[in-house]
């Protein structure tokens, strides 16, 4: 995160430092890893434009598609950074998105109110998130395993929710959904939430404390940081992200089945890492990682679809390329922080 903020205001640094040396230029060795995710996105975007132009892709539609496909992931992943920054690992994000979206859908069907749907999505997601947080905090459980358990519970809840309708799906009136499934709505939700997250993470105590916990939980505790309060705040924000993501999901796909949103959970993870977020959290956490990574993934997916969809193994090959690109970006991004010992 610092790497990025420093990069974007090189002029301001010289003057703001208290003792002249405080804001020296970074050496290329540090800079390249820090910028690897951004470079990745640039390279991918160039490839996307080249491939798209050569193959005669409808570019304006394609760009809209990019936003459509990445906005939910970006929102959820940005919120989730608050969890991952502390060194916690939440694997149940996809499942809670589904449950929140379903409750939102049911709420809309009961009230026919957009606001009720939004509120229902957010409340459900935040509540779900807080259940994980309190299980972890009160009973000292590792968050990862708690959320593994939550994953199955939420899956079961989704089935139960579908059953309440006595049918295969939870369905929201699609003409209503279409009315709000627009770029301005998506972008304003995304911008508002991202701005909130960047603000909280960069300019308030919460972000600092989270990085401290991620860096060394014992030190954080002995510096008077309340693990429980921080964890609950982090999960609440992540929940808010999931709620907003769920809200946009209902608008985008008003027909929800138990297998909806299935791949969101893992895609969120890949997006974050792709964007340069260290999975163990800590001081090197970057709040922009989700945005970079989410866009990179969407651009890559689009490009690969254009290139490979006609061959029968195309989807497999495109995933192989995605995997290789992912590993390459992560490799370059972490190249500055390697020790003699293998990382764990």
């Amino acid at each position: 995160m610092h790497d990025l903020t420093q990069r974007t205001r090189p002029g301001a640094n010289g003057t703001s430092g208290p003792n002249g040396t405080a804001a020296r230029r970074r050496s290329p060795r540090e800079l390249v890893p820090a910028l690897a995710p951004l470079l990745g996105l640039v390279v991918l975007t160039v490839a996307f434009v080249v491939v798209g132009t050569v193959s005669g892709v409808n570019m304006s539609y394609s760009v809209q598609t990019l936003i459509n496909q990445s906005v939910v992931i970006v929102i959820i992943a940005t919120g989730a950074i608050f969890i991952f920054a502390m060194g916690s690992f939440d694997i149940s994000l996809g499942a809670s998105t589904l449950v929140a979206a379903m409750v939102g859908g049911l709420a809309y069907n009961a009230t026919e109110s957009l606001v009720a749907m939004l509120v229902a999505c957010i409340l459900t997601a935040v509540a779900t998130s807080l259940v994980s947080a309190s299980l972890a905090a009160v009973f000292n459980l590792p968050v990862f395993v708690t959320t593994v358990a939550m994953l199955s519970v939420l899956g079961a809840v989704a089935v139960a929710l579908v059953q309440t309708t006595g049918g295969a799906q939870i369905k929201v009136d699609s003409s209503f959904a279409r009315q709000y499934d627009t770029l301005p709505v998506k972008l304003s939700v995304a911008v508002a939430f991202l701005a909130l997250c960047v603000f909280l993470f960069t300019y308030t105590r919460l972000g600092r404390v989270e990085k401290l916990i991620g860096g060394n939980p014992v030190t954080a505790r002995l510096t008077g940081v309340s693990m429980k309060k921080t964890a609950i705040a982090a999960f609440a924000i992540a929940g808010l992200g999931v709620g907003l993501g769920a809200f946009l999901t209902v608008l985008r796909t008003p027909t929800m089945t138990t297998s909806s949103a299935a791949d969101i959970g893992m895609n969120v993870l890949v997006a974050m890492v792709f964007g340069g977020m260290p999975i163990s959290g800590g001081p090197r956490t970057r709040i922009y990682a989700a945005l970079l990574g989410g866009l990179s993934m969407a651009v890559l997916n689009q490009t690969m679809t254009t290139l490979l969809a006609t061959s029968s193994a195309g989807n497999g090959i495109s995933q192989v390329v995605r995997a290789l690109f992912f590993l390459a970006v992560v490799w370059v991004a972490t190249s500055g922080h390697r020790s003699k010992l293998l990382p764990r």
Binding site: K211, T219, A220, R284
Partner: peptide, 18 residues
């Protein structure tokens, strides 16, 4: 190192933490 500092964080992060 294990209880009073966040070794991967900056001096600034550490001093400001309390």
């Amino acid at each position: 190192d294990t209880e009073s500092l966040s070794l991967t964080a900056s001096i600034s992060d550490n001093i400001a933490s309390a």
